[in-house]
Amino acid sequence: MKRIFGLSLATCALAAAAFAGSHANPALEGAVKARNAQMSVIAYHTGLLGGMAKGDVPYDAATAVAAAENLASAAAMKRAVLWIEGTEQGAVAGSRAKAEIWSDADGFEEKAVALEAASSAMITAAGTDLDALRAAMADVGGSCGACHKAYRGPKN
C-alpha cells in the first residue's frame, strides 16, 4: 500500500471523507450556529431578569422591560430556518438537539410556543414591579426547562 507522509492511502482517504462529511453542508452548520446564538441571547436576558428576581441585580423597570422585549424577540424567531432536520446532535458539530425535535415535532412546537407566550407575558410583568417579574420568571424558567429536558442532549 502506498504511503503519504507515513500514512497509508486508506488512512488519508478516511480522514478526507470524515473532514468532508463534517463540512458537507454549510447551511446546516449555519443553522446550528444561529440557533446557538439564539439560545445565548435567550440565556443572557433570562439571566439578567433572573438576577433581578433573585435580588442579585437591582430591579430597574426600564432595564427589565428591555431585557424582556429582547427575550421575547429571540423566543419568537422562526424555527423553520433554525431547527432544520439533519442538524441533530452528532450530525453537525455544536448541536445538542435531540432527534426527538423532528420525530415529535408537535411536542417541540408546543414547548417553543410556551416559551414565546411566557416571554411575551414577561414584558408587562417586568415593567410592573419586582413581584410581578418574579412570578413571570417561573413561567419563563419552566418553559425553558421543559424544552431542554425533552429536546436537548448532553454536553459533548
Rank of each mutant, 00 (worst) to 15 (best):
A62W: 04
C147W: 04
K2T: 12
W102T: 08
D60I: 08
L28Q: 11
G50Q: 06
A121L: 04
A61K: 11
A16F: 08
A80Y: 07
G6D: 04
N25G: 02
A74Y: 01
A15V: 14
Y151K: 01
S119L: 11
H45G: 12
F5N: 14
A72E: 07
N25T: 00
T46E: 04
A121W: 04
A80F: 00
G107R: 05
A105T: 12
A15S: 11
S120K: 15
W83N: 14
E88K: 11
A16N: 02
R3M: 13
I42N: 05
G21K: 07
A24V: 00
N25L: 04
A61I: 08
K2V: 14
R35V: 09
R96W: 04
M1Y: 00
A27Y: 01
G142V: 07
L130M: 07
R152K: 13
F108C: 04
I123W: 03
P58L: 10
S103Q: 03
V92W: 03
A117R: 14
E109W: 00
L115S: 01
M137S: 02
C12H: 05
W102Y: 05
A34F: 02
A135I: 07
G142Y: 02
D139M: 05
L28A: 10
T11Y: 00
A34S: 05
A64G: 03
I123T: 12
A150I: 08
E100L: 10
L9R: 15
D106E: 15
G50H: 08
A125M: 05
A126H: 05
Y44A: 15
N156G: 13
K111A: 13
A117G: 08
H45F: 15
A43D: 12
Y151N: 05
A37R: 10
K111Y: 07
G21R: 02
G153N: 08
T63F: 01
C12L: 15
E88W: 09
M77H: 06
A16P: 08
